[in-house]
Amino acid sequence: MATWLTGGVIGRWSVDDVVSFLRTGHGRGAVAFGAMAPVIEESTQYMTNDDLHAIAVYLKSLSAHGPAGTYNDNEYARARTYQAIATGEFERHGGGIYLSFCARCHEADGQGQQGKVAALAGNSLVLAPDPTSIIRIVTEGSKSPQTETGPEAKKMPAFTESARHARWPKW
């Protein structure tokens, strides 16, 4: 079963959040991708509210299978990040790479753009013990589902080629 169904995401969402996600492919800073996008495009967006509510209640009843990542959104960490962005001094590996490739859409603070671009700060895929899904999204790109009632579908480009030709720092 998909990690987001049995891990930290569903536990942090309300039943209404799950219903909205299943109807539009967007919810609480998350955007459906991969195999879930066609499920929403071709199926769940057309379900009745009662059916979506029943599915959401069922999903919320499932026990977590394994630990979920944690996200500590504290003022000190935000202040350090903003200072590094302002000064251009990145103490942590990846800061410059993130700003070069990701921040334009996902914002420098990782909060994304509500209804358009997924938040990365606190995102269960970013925090997952198995990085396979997030690596595939970055290297292969992704597309949000197109639904009748949700936000306009957006496409994230694949970064395989641009990353291959980037000048990486030597650590």
Rank of each mutant, 00 (worst) to 15 (best):
A2Y: 07
A2P: 11
T3R: 10
T6F: 00
V9R: 12
V9C: 08
I10G: 01
G11M: 06
R12Y: 07
W13D: 00
W13P: 02
V15R: 08
D17P: 02
S20N: 11
S20I: 04
F21L: 09
R23H: 11
T24K: 03
G25Y: 02
G25K: 00
A30F: 13
A35H: 11
A37Y: 02
V39T: 12
E41Y: 01
Y46R: 11
T48K: 04
D51S: 12
H53E: 12
V57C: 09
V57T: 15
V57G: 07
Y58Q: 09
L59R: 02
L59K: 01
A64Y: 00
A64H: 01
G69M: 02
T70E: 14
Y71F: 15
Y71P: 00
D73G: 08
D73P: 01
N74F: 05
R80Y: 00
Y82Q: 14
A84C: 09
I85Q: 06
I85D: 06
T87R: 07
G96K: 01
S100R: 14
S100N: 14
A103P: 03
R104F: 12
C105G: 08
E107L: 13
E107M: 14
A108E: 12
G110P: 04
Q113S: 07
Q114F: 10
Q114I: 13
V117T: 14
A119I: 01
A119G: 02
N123H: 11
P129W: 10
D130H: 07
D130Q: 05
P131I: 09
R136Y: 10
I137Q: 08
T139P: 00
G141I: 03
S142Q: 10
K143G: 03
K143S: 14
S144N: 04
T147S: 03
T147D: 06
E148P: 03
T149D: 12
T149H: 13
G150Q: 05
P151M: 03
P151A: 15
E152F: 04
M156H: 10
P157R: 12
A158K: 02
T160G: 09
S162W: 06
A163N: 07
H165S: 13
A166R: 06
R167V: 13
W168F: 07
W171P: 09
